[in-house]
Amino acid sequence: MKKMYVLIGNYGSGKTELAINFALRAAETGRTEILDLDMVNTYFRLTEPGIMTRMKEIRLVSPNFTNSSVETLSLPAEVQSAFAMDWDTVVFDVGGDAAGSTALGRYHQDFMELEEGQLEVLNVINIRRPLSGTVDRIIRIQNEMQVHSRLKITGMINNTNLSVATTEAELRDGYEIIKEVSERSGIPVAYTSGKKEFLDAFLAEGHDPKYIGTPVPIDVYMKRDWDSWVKTV
């Protein structure tokens, strides 16, 4: 049965990195398509030459005019291939916040025709981002995204990170806040993701599995030439 993962969330929560990880894992066992559905950002996206080469066995669909000087991207007809073709796994990497998730509304009918259990709509959360740092803020963004995407969020992903300065403390602090979000919103925590070393250290602390979901160790693929040097305090 075809499985679809739709990753939405606040800007900078790590959707693209997770989308690549989900797709690469799925590609080990089945035919996989990944869709860059970010209609907002003009920089640093899934459709970058360096990322594409690593996606050899994965079909990548990008909006028209990505990585050009056009600021108003458009959705290509190929997005329909996600629904029409016989994939094992499809991953949607969607733009941030309500503005970004609006692009999904166009495919409402297609999503509605999926069978029970085929679709996971996942809110990727990073509580180290200023606008998703509190329970109230996360719930507000979550509600807005559901309205704009015309989809119901089925689960949350604790992907709390500080980029190069990440430790297990990020996942732990994320766990505490997302737990409360889950209790208040009724939306379960579907996954907790992070680099293996931090994820293992966090899991060893013995938190309630109900608010961890499935642990997903990830690798970082969005590396760039200037990343090796970061001034931190």
Partner: peptide
């Protein structure tokens, strides 16, 4: 520490 976009 927070994770911020340069412009923000």
């Amino acid at each position: 520490l927070t994770l911020m976009k340069g412009s923000e």
